[in-house]
Design a protein around this nucleic acid. Structure first.
Length: 701
DNA sequence: TGAACAACTTAGGACTATTGTA
DNA sequence: TACAATAGTCCTAAGTTGTTCA
């Protein structure tokens, strides 16, 4: 990445400049930004950014992100489809002349940016890099200008959402019984009953809370007659319904190829019709164009609302967002949208309010879209900015451990955890609304145990709490003495259920972070620590002499280190033990095969020695090759077994998708000659197209 | 100033398609 | 070819952060 190196200089200069120019946008935030800038400049002469000299005259570099706010109002506005400078934090602006250079370049090497909706044509995949395999038309949005002023798009057209299929009443032979007696349910009550019947095998349905919530909501759908009769859920017999759905699912599996194909084609048709939108001249894929169907709410962990009825969403619940001058989506015949609005400061196309928590749900674009990709790129640039000043921030919070003020000490210790352990910020949650989970700022005394000495180490903190998605975080961490003493202080005279950091919340913390670095928030630390860990691990674990499978094992191990850091767990696959066993059997068989092959080679050699003819020489050669081949196969299997075993309870996907700067992986692949397909599947390659295109083998996070 | 709301990212598990193996 | 294992996709809940409102 040539980008950032020299960018820094430019950036800082720009920043200086913009500090004093154009006041209009700066008003209130002005001072803040200035302070930040000062801060950054200060940081600069620190150790962090050394070798950014080199040249860096690559086209690529013209466009780079940077968390710095800046505005050069002089630019004014540009033609509708040329985005003007980023206005506010996040993006770095290239000087105007660079822009025009870029535009020329874009014009000849990519599609005309203005008119074409979908650019067709040969793989635009930039000769030197990038796979040739996927010659779909590609739009390199990362080489174009960005919007400013919070504008997300200028034109947006789509077909609206796809609604859940209407309820199909059960055939009359599928009966429901109450207290042993058949009872015909009204359609409304029957539909909700089927939701429960479909989940009968799940242990959810045995939980008290689930049953209670379900029954309460079910009753609301009953006729008054049903309500008076059906008084006890335990007397309800859903088994025929349940059997019926099982049979249906079996039937679906047993469909002929033709039938399956037909369904597939129909899905494809819907995808083509509803799965894309046009945003600013480009056809973009929508992520979730189907409205969530009604059903019973399944929260994660011990959720107080599990079992409640998630109601069916109708057109009247839907808010459409699109441009005024677009063809507006039509509601189904005889219905109306709740509202059609034209807000180009947001990215969603459709929204509705869900009835369980009362929160808003959105239909948005796919990760491969420009709007998501830019944001993602920006996220990693922010993390890289943190890299430059993290030493100073660390020094700062260590200093703050000694503060006279309790709130500052708490803040400093919390930040230390966020940095060292990659904990989440930890917002407060409304009691009774969600499962009881915590993050850093919301830790309670009961979640920590302090050990003056443990397993031969001093000052060990034992964490045990449920985090996001009710995933358990359990960790024993030796900490610095000062942290330990502070924790003792924070816990003094408190009940187990009291907040550990009673003078702190996420908003206080983030405000403080904002002062340390513009745009810095708690989650940036997770991104930063994840990415830097990957890079370090890759450097440590891989050698260019390794063969590809070994390199990939190393990659996975590096990825795993990150997943462990971020506590990304998964339930071990149900078939884990068995599949491990199978693999071991295969390995044993392969070993035997290898022994045989070696034996054969030996005898072939002996034979050749005696005969000394061409034929037997050839035989030796072919036996040799066979041995080699089998050895390779065996090695592959063994690597696979190791990888799988180590991965038993760890989910790699989450960090790969959300925390690891893809350019690190891309550069690693390029440097070590590993095909990118080995690391990213097709979807991932689409999401990270920007990184695959721009990162060279010398990219450094 | 803090609560509520809005927008957006991150998350694990269920479901489905594809691949490998007997 | 049938079936099981694995990989990939979909689904939507659960977070974080920013904004608005009282």
């Amino acid at each position: 990445d040539k980008e950032h190196k020299h960018k820094d200089h430019k950036k800082d200069k720009e920043r200086e400049k913009s500090k004093y120019s154009n006041s209009e946008h700066r008003d209130s935030s002005d001072k803040k930004h200035r302070d930040k800038d000062k801060e950054r400049l200060k940081l600069k002469d620190g150790s962090s950014d050394k070798q950014k000299d080199k040249h860096k005259e690559k086209k690529k570099e013209e466009r780079s992100f940077d968390g710095k706010p800046k505005k050069e109002k002089e630019n004014g506005f540009e033609s509708p489809f040329i985005k003007s400078e980023p206005e506010n934090n996040d993006f770095y602006h290239s000087p105007k002349h660079e822009k025009s250079l870029k535009r020329e370049r874009d014009d000849d090497d990519i599609k005309p940016k203005k008119k074409t909706k979908v650019k067709k044509g040969e793989a635009v995949t930039d000769g030197k890099k990038k796979a040739k395999k996927e010659p779909e038309e590609k739009w390199k949005w990362w080489e174009e200008e960005r919007y400013t002023d919070g504008v997300k798009w200028k034109f947006l057209e789509h077909k609206g959402p796809v609604f859940a299929p209407p309820y199909e009443p059960l055939p009359s032979n599928v009966k429901f019984y109450y207290d042993g007696k058949h009872m015909k349910l009204s359609p409304g009550a029957e539909e909700v009953a089927t939701f429960f019947a479909k989940m009968l095998d799940h242990e959810y349905t045995t939980k008290d809370v689930f049953r209670k919530n379900f029954f309460k909501d079910w009753r609301k759908e009953m006729t008054s007659e049903e309500k008076s009769k059906l008084a006890d859920l335990n007397k309800c017999d859903f088994s025929e319904m349940s059997e019926y759905f099982k049979a249906q699912s079996e039937a679906r599996k047993a469909m002929t190829k033709e039938e399956k194909l037909k369904i597939k084609e129909e899905n494809e048709r819907i995808l083509q019709e509803y799965g894309f939108c046009v945003m600013d001249n480009h056809k973009e894929r929508i992520a979730n164009f189907r409205i969530e169907p009604p059903g019973l709410f399944r929260g994660r962990g011990d959720h107080p609302k599990m079992g409640m009825l998630k109601r069916r969403i109708r057109p009247e619940d839907i808010i459409i967002n699109c441009s005024k001058d677009s063809k507006h989506p039509k509601p189904p015949p005889g219905t109306k949208w709740k509202e059609v609005r034209h807000d180009n400061k947001v990215t969603w196309l459709v929204s509705w309010t869900e009835n369980i928590q009362g929160s808003i749900k959105y239909i948005m674009l796919n990760p491969s879209s420009r709007i998501k990709g830019e944001k993602d790129w920006q996220k990693y640039e922010m993390a890289r900015r943190l890299k430059k000043c993290v030493d100073r921030i660390r020094a700062q919070y260590r200093e703050d451990w000694k503060s006279k003020e309790m709130r500052i000490r708490q803040r400093a210790v919390a930040l230390y955890f966020i940095d060292k352990l990659a904990l989440r910020a930890g917002n407060e949650k409304e009691e009774g609304e969600t499962a009881d989970t915590v993050g850093c700022c919301s830790l309670r005394v009961e979640h920590l145990t302090l050990h003056q000495e443990m397993d031969g180490q001093e000052y060990v903190v034992e964490f045990d709490f449920l985090g996001k998605d009710s995933i358990r975080y359990y960790n024993k961490v030796p900490v610095e003495k000062r942290v330990f003493k502070n924790l003792q202080l924070f816990m003094e005279d408190k009940e187990p259920e009291d907040d550990l950091f009673d003078r702190l919340n996420t908003s206080i913390l983030n405000k403080h972070l904002q002062e340390l670095m513009d745009g810095l928030t708690a989650k940036v630390f997770r991104t930063y620590n994840a990415s830097i860990t990957l890079q370090q691990q890759l450097n440590e674990l891989t050698t260019s002499e390794d063969n590809v499978p070994a390199k990939i094992l190393s990659y996975n191990r590096a990825n795993r280190a990150v997943a462990i850091l971020c506590n990304h767990q998964r339930a071990p696959p149900k078939t884990f033990e068995k599949s491990m066993q199978n693999l071991q059997t295969k390995i044993d068989a392969k070993k035997e095969q290898l022994a045989d092959a070696k034996r054969e080679l030996k005898s072939a050699k002996a034979d050749a020695k005696v005969r000394r003819d061409e034929k037997s020489k050839k035989a030796v050669e072919s036996k040799k090759k066979a041995v080699q081949r089998i050895e390779e196969q065996l090695m592959k299997l063994e690597v696979q077994a190791t990888d799988r075993e180590e991965n038993k309870q760890i989910a790699l996907g989450t960090s790969k998708l959300n925390y690891l700067d893809p350019r690190i992986s891309v550069a690693w692949c390029k440097k070590l000659g590993v095909p990118i397909e080995k690391i990213y599947n097709k979807t991932q390659r689409e999401k990270f197209a920007w990184a695959i295109d721009m990162a060279e083998k010398d990219y450094e996070f």
